[in-house]
């Protein structure tokens, strides 16, 4: 009996080498709670090729290209103020274009080269807070934020996303183009502009 089990262990060790350890002892349990359907966290930076609709990788690639291009031009000398204007979605897909701008803004803010002011969409919350501080009568006089002290943006970012879709039933080709422009608000001039092109092809 003993010799036989010994032989078995030796055989196992020989056949599978190092992995024999894991096969002979039970694996340790990971700290997860899981049901039938397998769910896993994935690499948030992985190339997403599930469908050829606008996806996470496209968003990341656009944001990276735009921030890289903005940072290397050196237009942000002296930490100017910038605001986000509109991003037109001219595709036929429901794409949250504000999300692309959010990614760009995050990276630019983290670079420390630029200051952002409230965008039009973020204005209401700011106005509400100012009114609460100044008109509710709840706060100490000197501690309230003064109305009329906001810094206006020197530059504004305007973008648009377009797409060309060709589909013949078996092959679908989608071409995306994201264009971003930075205007000098006072002068109305374009101070910087870049675009990112993406082609995605899928076969059915």
């Amino acid at each position: 009996m003993l010799t036989r089990s010994h032989l078995l262990v030796m055989l196992l060790a020989l056949s599978s080498g190092l992995t024999a350890c894991s096969s002979s002892t039970p694996p340790v349990a990971s700290p997860v709670l899981r049901f039938d359907r397998e769910v896993n966290y994935g690499d948030d930076k992985a190339v997403e090729l599930v469908t050829n609709e606008f996806g996470s990788t496209d968003l990341q690639m656009i944001a990276e290209k735009m921030t890289g291009s903005l940072l290397e031009t050196g237009i942000f000398q002296g930490r100017p103020t910038v605001t986000i204007s509109t991003v037109k979605n001219k595709t036929s897909e429901y794409i949250d274009t504000t999300n692309i701008m959010n990614s760009i803004q995050t990276t630019l803010v983290k670079s420390g080269k630029v200051r952002f002011t409230r965008s039009i969409n973020e204005m209401q919350a700011g106005v509400d807070e100012l009114q609460r501080q100044n008109q509710s009568g709840l706060y100490k006089q000197h501690s309230t934020a003064k109305i009329g002290k906001m810094t206006a943006a020197k530059y504004s970012l305007e973008g648009e996303l377009t797409s060309i879709v060709k589909d013949n039933g078996s092959t679908k080709d989608v071409f995306y183009k994201f264009t971003l422009k930075m205007f000098d608000v006072e002068e109305g001039t374009i101070e910087w502009q870049d675009e990112k092109q993406i082609r995605k092809t899928s076969k059915r």
């Binding site: 509109t86 037109k88 979605n89 036929s92 429901y94 949250d96 274009t97 504000t98 969409n121």
Partner: peptide, 23 residues
């Protein structure tokens, strides 16, 4: 979809809604 996104001030998402309705 277009109407609601417009109400919520998200024209980037409202546009494809209106566009698809037209198509």
């Amino acid at each position: 979809a277009g109407f609601l996104y417009e109400v919520l001030n998200e024209p980037g998402l409202a546009a494809p809604g209106y566009r698809k309705a037209i198509e």
